[in-house]
Structures are given as C-alpha cells and as structure tokens.
C-alpha cells in the first residue's frame, strides 16, 4: 500500500504539486494520467526519493518513506523493493545489454556469481520477447522498442514488488506500443506486483490500469476504477480521455 498525503513540490516560481493525496493498494495497477508538464514525473520521482517534496508524507505499508526521513541503510532496503522503467530506457550505454539487466544482481551484499546473473538476465530478456543474442550487444545498437524491452527486463530483474513505468509507450509505433502495454499487464499480473504508470496514452490506460487517477493543477482531480472512467461527468477527465481541444483544460501550457 502506497499512500501519499499533502505532497507539495515547487520549482522556483512554479508550484508543480500542490497537495497530492493518493493511495495505491498492494497488487493493483494504478495509472496516472495528465497533460505534459502537470508533474506526473515529479510525483513518481518524489515517491522514489529522487526529488524531495517540500511538504507532505509518503507512506509505504504504513512506514514513512519520505526521502528526508530515511537513513542510508533503510533507503537501500526501500529501493531494493522497486523496479523502474524510465521514459527513454535510461540504459547504461557503457555496459552490454545483459550487464544492464543484471546490474542490481551483480552488485550489493546479495550479489550473484557472474554466470548465474547472466543466465538470469537472459531469462528476463526472453520474458520480454528478446532473443539471447541481444545480451551481448550494447544499448546503442538496439531500436527504440528493443531498448524499452531491455529497460523493462532490467526493471523486473530483481523481482521487485513495486514497479513504476514512466511513459512506457512514448516514442513507439502503435503496434509496438500495444505489445509493450500487453507485456506490462502480463508481467504485473504474473508477478503480483503493485504497479504505478504515468502516461498520456489512453490505449495504455485501458490496457494496464485497474484504477486511474488524473493529475491536474497540482492535485488529483479524479480517481476511480478504470471501468468508471468513461461514465464520469468530470469535465477535465472527459476532455482528456476524448482528446478535445475545447474544455476546462487550457490547450496552451
């Protein structure tokens, strides 16, 4: 269970988050929608402690995990529970594909022997639909869709119980986007993980989400099960899911 209450974050004169309240039940898939620049990424990075919120608390299974309130060791244990797929993949380009996937497995106190880590990496690569030959290539030699898959394999390599997806389909063609969406759904269900995805791609929302939350104006505007999303009368949600230029959301941002 991840619970955010009153999370605020401001960059200079720009108040990005203005009191976000949100809870994500364990084992469910939450998708956060919202326009570009509404602070979706900032929200995700606040939970991971990559960005420190100005105010508010973030609780994980009843423990305060706001970045400021954790010691180094606690933070390591906290991060070990997470996997994250970054928007651009964020693969380390100096390392081979399998070394990227096995990055966490090769380091730290519970580090695996190299051969074992490599075998596990290849198994994860197969899980996301990549052949074992890809393992010895460098990330720059892969297409965008393959990089996304490698990023996904890296995110799930250490069997995390919480996975974050930052715009998983951005920059992919519609077919590849569909493939990645299905893959995310399958993996999340099969691992029983808690998932949090941020996106503005409505096909991702319908494929991945159990619950949906819409971030607008620095607060959660609407939240509910994906099945109720189409019926809601909230004008912001309606404008967003139908992609209308007219409505309460200003089109110039």
């Amino acid at each position: 269970m991840i619970e955010l209450s009153g999370v605020h974050k401001r960059f200079g004169d720009n108040p990005v988050l203005q009191g976000v309240n949100l809870s994500i039940a364990s084992g469910t898939s939450m998708v956060i929608i919202g326009g570009s620049g509404t602070g979706k990424s900032v929200l995700l990075k606040c939970i991971l402690g990559l960005i420190r919120p100005d105010r508010g608390t973030i609780m994980l299974d009843g423990r305060d995990v706001t970045a400021q309130s954790m010691s180094g060791r606690d933070r390591d244990a906290f991060l070990a529970r997470f996997g994250m797929l970054f928007q651009g993949g964020a693969l380390f380009d100096s390392l081979k594909v399998w070394e990227n996937v096995a990055f966490r497995l090769l380091r730290g106190e519970a580090a695996l022997p190299k051969a074992e880590a490599r075998a596990l990496a290849i198994e994860k690569l197969r899980r996301v639909g990549l052949k074992p030959e890809v393992a010895d290539l460098f990330p720059a030699e892969l297409s965008g869709g393959m990089q996304k898959r490698v990023g996904l394999a890296r995110a799930i390599a250490a069997s995390p119980d919480i996975i974050f997806f930052d715009e998983p389909t951005t920059g992919l063609d519609p077919i590849m986007a569909g493939v990645i969406n299905d893959l995310i759904r399958e993996i999340v269900v099969e691992m029983g993980a808690t998932a949090m995805t941020i996106t503005h791609d409505m096909s991702s929302v319908r494929a991945i989400a159990d619950t949906v939350a819409m971030l607008h104006g620095g607060v959660i505007r609407w939240t509910g099960p994906v099945s109720e999303m189409d019926e809601t009368t909230d004008p912001y949600v309606q404008q967003f899911i139908h992609g209308r230029a007219e409505g309460p959301i200003e089109s110039v941002r």
Binding site: K45, L48, G49, L79, A80, A90
Partner: peptide, 12 residues
C-alpha cells in the same frame, strides 16, 4: 538521459 536516476533506483 536519466541514467543517474536509474543508478539510484538500482540501489547504486
């Protein structure tokens, strides 16, 4: 390219 953030999320 967010590789530094990725390092942090991989406990490094």
């Amino acid at each position: 390219t967010e590789q530094i953030d990725a390092l942090v999320t991989l406990s490094t």
